[in-house]
């Protein structure tokens, strides 16, 4: 499931962009160290393949509804960790642009959620050890299903975390997690089955094809997979640390800091009703009670997290009036330009 710009706060969006970009840069650098000339065209064309494959809908067994594949695991099995991550990032980039799937800020999150987990966790740490050398069909199926499910579960959990940290949704953490993980359990099983099916189909039909592929990007099991694991844990710790720092320093993300920097007038604590409402909102948005999220010293500011609920009724009317006028003006400008351009051509 794709994250969307509108659900994100700038801080969360920027953090995940940084993480994804760093991984892209790291993978590109690593791949350049083992140059295989064939790799670039192969990666590109396989990206296009995933893209095309995603557009074919199939009937999900037992439900009658239709779905499409994600392809992260297929890519990882074929190209190895690094190259598959880059290809997935590319597929998501094209989707963000041409289908507007999620948007450009959310792209960082989406690359993280759908790229990192299958390529750097599910494949090297789950799929490879299970399939091992013998690669019997049974092992492929088991490995694919488990790794696809886990990869997607991690991705889904990321979506929840990102949404929660951004604070745009009111969904309680527990409900949200439960919902997302269940949905993605089903998706993961189907994805795993398709992955296993495609891999074994190709193995049977054209065994030599898979062997010929360049595998510069494959992280071999053993020492390097341990190294990878450590790297990942470190990365997670850093990201987590950064996020909780953000979260605790700026309870409502960047917007709070913007307010502070730009010095919004402190609103007097006049309206009983609204303060009460706010308190209610506050209680509802407080998730993960034992997570040190709202530092006591900020509790005071927390009660006026945003401008809308704290404005008085008169301003609301002026807000609506203003919005109408602004929209009308913008539309007139747009139509005017179109009319002028239309006449000129």
């Amino acid at each position: 499931m794709h994250m969307a710009d509108a659900m994100l706060s700038p801080a969360v969006g920027a953090t995940f962009w940084t993480g994804s970009l760093a991984t892209i840069t790291y993978c590109s650098k690593k791949l350049r160290e083992y140059p295989d000339e064939k790799l670039i065209p192969l990666m590109g064309v396989l990206g296009a393949f995933i893209f095309a494959a995603q557009m074919i809908n199939f009937t999900i067994p037992g439900t009658g509804s239709s779905g499409h594949i994600g392809g992260g695991m297929i890519l990882a099995i074929i190209l190895g960790s690094r190259a598959s991550f880059l290809v997935m990032a590319s597929v998501l980039t094209v989707q963000a642009l041409f289908f507007a799937d999620g948007g450009l800020l959310a792209l960082g999150c989406n690359i993280w959620n759908l790229g990192i987990y299958p390529s750097f966790i599910a494949y090297p740490l789950i799929y490879k050890p299970i399939v091992h050398a013998d690669g019997s069909l049974k092992r492929i199926v088991i490995a694919s299903v488990i790794s696809a499910v886990l990869g997607l579960q991690m991705g889904a959990f990321s979506v929840v975390t990102e949404t929660m940290l951004s604070g745009r949704s009111e969904l309680p953490f527990g409900t949200f997690v439960l919902m997302m993980q269940t949905i993605h359990l089903g998706i993961g099983i189907v994805e795993g089955m398709v992955t296993a099916g495609v891999i074994s189909f190709v193995r049977n039909a054209r065994p030599e094809l898979l062997e010929r592929l360049p595998t510069a990007g494959t992280v071999t099991a053993g020492a390097s997979s341990r190294k990878l694991f450590v790297t990942f844990i470190l990365l997670a710790a850093i990201t987590g640390g950064a996020l909780s720092w953000f979260a605790s320093t700026f309870p409502d993300g960047l917007e709070w800091s913007i307010e502070r920097v730009y010095g919004k007038p402190e609103l007097p604590d006049q309206e009983q009703g609204i303060t009460a409402v706010l308190k209610g909102i506050q209680d509802k948005t407080a998730f993960l009670p034992d997570y040190n999220f709202q530092k006591p010293e900020y509790a005071g500011q927390q009660e006026k997290p945003s401008s809308w609920p704290s404005v008085d009724a008169g301003t609301s009317l002026s807000g609506i009036l203003g919005a109408g006028i602004v929209l009308a003006v913008v539309l007139i400008i747009g139509l005017g330009i179109r009319a002028i351009r239309g006449r000129r051509s």
Binding site: L21, I24, T25, C27, S28, K29, L31, R32, I40, P41, M43, G44, V45, G47, A48, F51, L86, V87, A89, S90, V91, T93, V94
Partner: peptide
């Protein structure tokens, strides 16, 4: 953005 990434992105698009 690294050239390797953009090159294969261009292949993808093509």
């Amino acid at each position: 953005i690294p050239a390797l990434f953009t090159s294969q992105l261009l292949f993808l698009y093509r």
